[in-house]
Design a protein around this nucleic acid. Structure first.
Lengths: 225, 225
DNA sequence: ATATTTATTATTGTCGACAATCCTACATCA
DNA sequence: TGATGTAGGATTGTCGACAATAATAAATAT
């Protein structure tokens, strides 16, 4: 890696970065309604930062896509939309296929053990009935191939897409009590990631994503006319 | 499309957006040295905007990757680096393959005529010995598949990657007089885009990109020990 | 002379205030 | 009654100033 901004330092760094994370968490926890307008004055008061600082964080979240910025109109939390969800999943599929192509030859016992651990954590969260944790754990599981790929741009791209997925999951979870991933959902995923056929892995990704999409899409349709 | 920010309005909109474009143009014209530190006070004076406004624009350019932000240290123009260039090209290849997959069935006479026109413009710029215009024209040519795909995320992703490519091209052009694309370089690209085989198109993309990468990489190696 | 510590300065981080724009409610007119 | 126009208030856009941090230069000690 040559140029990179860690930016995920735990509560370190600048106030802007901490504000960014807090705001993101606020969104991903489901405290805000989809499509809701974010009032700068109110939010800056609530988060106890100046508007300028808050705005810089909001610019970044708009770039990610979690927020939608309309000049002179305001900044809004993204809406739940079938078309958007479809795009997120199709893009995600292509991205994760790329990631596996790049990481395939870099797999070794250590990294595969790491993958297994991530799956275990996911199963634990499901067992303990911790939906929010399960969502995070599933994202962490899927981050594996991006991290292993060593491809900065891919990782960044996933880093931008991820919060949008989490957002849909969080809304799903908030609406119905159940919404998180199922226990055995990643068994084949893990198995193929440990296997010898990249082609099989890529094929399964299509199915895996399609299944996830349908699951979330079903929830979307249940709440609209 | 459901949620999107045009943001490419010509000289319209907010001062921040105009500042963003002006700063980007400043970079892409080659007025700034790679790795150079961007002094906020100086730049804000030069562009005749406040630091707060400039900073919002810089946050956005950092998100794109043109600028590298280091807390309390400053914001720097990205460096020329073989590893980075390699990543840009490999990511671009995967992205454009996705774009062609999505747009393939949407092609019709009108859009293909549009593609032809973009290539003509590129050839014109080369003929008239307008390197900067040729760079922009080539980017516009490659934007075709993303626009036709109708995939917002894909288009956004390309919109973020594009300036980084343009940056490398601009540096190439600035160093050697020649650097832009060759006249016939996109003939096969156009031909296959008009053809019936998506697989052939995708295969050619690998070659096409590889060739572009080597061309730019050669220039990079000529200027380092 | 070199290394370490201590001022000094330059630059970035953060803030509160003012200006420009938009939304709303009310008034005016056909 | 409906449409159009017009204040008023609320919200965003932009700015300049102050505080916190890092880079630099000077001074001291070994």
């Amino acid at each position: 890696m040559t140029q990179q901004v860690s930016s995920t330092e735990k509560s370190g760094g600048t106030l802007k970065d901490r504000t960014l994370e807090r705001l993101q968490k606020l969104i991903l926890t489901g405290d805000l309604e989809p499509g809701a307008k974010l009032l700068e004055t109110q939010l800056s008061a609530q988060l106890d930062v100046s508007r300028a600082t808050l705005r810089e964080a909001m610019v970044q979240l708009s770039e990610i896509g979690l927020l939608v910025y309309l000049p002179f109109r305001g900044t809004f939390l993204r809406k739940l939309d079938p078309v958007d969800l479809d795009e997120i999943y199709s893009f995600r599929t292509g991205l994760e296929k790329m990631a596996f192509q790049f990481c395939w030859d870099k797999r070794d016992l250590i990294s595969l053990a790491d993958l297994q651990m991530r799956n275990n954590r996911l199963c634990d969260c499901i067992t303990q009935n911790d939906p929010y944790g399960a969502i995070m754990a599933e994202m962490h599981l899927h981050s594996w191939c991006y991290e292993l790929s060593g491809h900065t741009l891919l990782l960044q791209s996933w880093g931008r897409l991820k919060p949008n997925l989490q957002f849909y999951f969080a809304m799903h979870q908030k609406a119905h009590g159940r919404g998180g991933p199922l226990r055995e959902s990643h068994d084949k995923y893990i198995e193929l990631a440990n296997g010898d056929s990249l082609a099989d892995m890529l094929d399964h990704l299509e199915d895996h994503m399609q299944q996830g999409l349908e699951n979330t899409m079903k929830f979307l349709n249940e709440r609209s006319p």
